Simulated scan of single mutants.
Amino acid sequence: MSRPMVTAITVSYNSAKTIRDTIESVLNQTYDKMEYIIVDGLSKDDTVKIAEEYKEKFAAKGYLYKIISEKDNGIYDAMNKGIKNATGDLIGIINSDDWYEKEAAETAAAEYEKKPYVMFYADINIVRADGSVIVKHSKNMKGLQTSLHWNHPTTFIPKKVYDKVGLYACDNINDDWDMYLRIKKTGKRFVVVNKVLANFRFGGVSNDHGFKKWKQRIDNCYVCYRKNGYSRLYWFIVAAKETAKILV
């Protein structure tokens, strides 16, 4: 039986300082059936030039490699472009300032081969600017749903699940959490592995936690809960989570 193809997608814009780490983490995967798609939003720096330097290396390893560089309507619109272009059975999204551990794709594929799932995710290293590292553990949440126990950079979702639930809504910065909740509503199998499979560089778009953003982030996340049928009580859970972030 043929093993599943794994597609990794990276969305980038002016990411020349960090994208090498991301690209090389995909290139160095232990899994042998990989596709890598970089969706760039017309970067003004050397992001695309750096990406093009790796074409021969990906070809030599037998990995499919595609670079799309065109105007987009934000990060989730770019993710949707990547998903539409993906030919893999499983899709992971790793941002241009984050990077995979070398066995990320192998672990996700092996779990899918045991029994198909609608979502896979794992533990992650949060790397601070001073180089210190905190491990954020994952958990398969049965009752209370909170992103405190979910790590998007480690997530792999079957292409056919996107075909069923749709693409990212492109409504706000919490659209990744909206996708989680939409897939959770299917009631199908989630798989969580307590092993670090990716590294998250603290300080990107999704971790701007100043006081000015506090109310906006609460409102955006709360909307995701309400549109997916969750209780109004989740406002207090979101507020507590966002308050904790700005106090760290």
Results as ranks from 00 to 15, higher is better:
199 N>P: 10
49 K>W: 05
117 Y>I: 06
134 I>Y: 13
100 Y>G: 06
98 D>F: 00
180 Y>E: 02
105 A>H: 00
230 Y>P: 08
23 I>P: 11
145 Q>D: 12
36 Y>W: 12
49 K>V: 13
85 N>F: 07
144 L>I: 14
176 D>V: 04
241 K>P: 05
40 D>E: 08
32 D>Y: 11
11 V>K: 01
160 K>M: 05
168 Y>V: 03
152 H>Q: 06
168 Y>G: 05
210 G>T: 15
113 E>T: 04
3 R>W: 10
55 K>Q: 12
115 K>S: 07
184 K>M: 08
20 R>H: 11
46 D>V: 03
129 A>L: 10
49 K>F: 08
160 K>D: 13
152 H>I: 07
158 P>F: 01
53 E>S: 13
194 N>S: 10
19 I>N: 04
38 I>A: 08
157 I>C: 04
226 R>D: 14
82 G>I: 01
149 H>A: 14
71 K>T: 11
9 I>P: 12
231 S>K: 12
208 D>H: 11
208 D>G: 07
156 F>H: 09
85 N>I: 06
207 N>T: 15
127 V>K: 10
48 V>C: 11
234 Y>E: 11
4 P>E: 02
109 A>Y: 03
136 K>F: 03
173 I>H: 13
87 T>E: 14
190 F>C: 05
112 Y>H: 13
145 Q>L: 15
13 Y>K: 14
128 R>A: 12
20 R>K: 15
182 R>H: 05
142 K>I: 09
231 S>I: 04
93 I>M: 04
24 E>M: 03
178 D>F: 02
198 A>Y: 03
54 Y>L: 07
206 S>K: 06
186 T>M: 07
137 H>A: 11
225 Y>S: 08
235 W>E: 15
87 T>V: 14
74 G>Q: 01
206 S>L: 10
32 D>E: 15
81 K>L: 04
144 L>Y: 14
47 T>S: 15
245 K>S: 15
206 S>Q: 11
72 D>M: 04
156 F>P: 13
78 A>I: 01
243 T>C: 09
118 V>W: 00
233 L>M: 12
74 G>D: 07
99 W>S: 13
31 Y>G: 12
131 G>S: 10
83 I>A: 07
26 V>R: 01
185 K>M: 06
51 A>G: 11
111 E>I: 04
219 D>H: 08
162 Y>R: 05
2 S>D: 10
36 Y>K: 13
59 A>Q: 12
2 S>E: 11
36 Y>L: 14
125 N>I: 00
222 Y>R: 07
97 D>L: 07
103 E>Q: 11
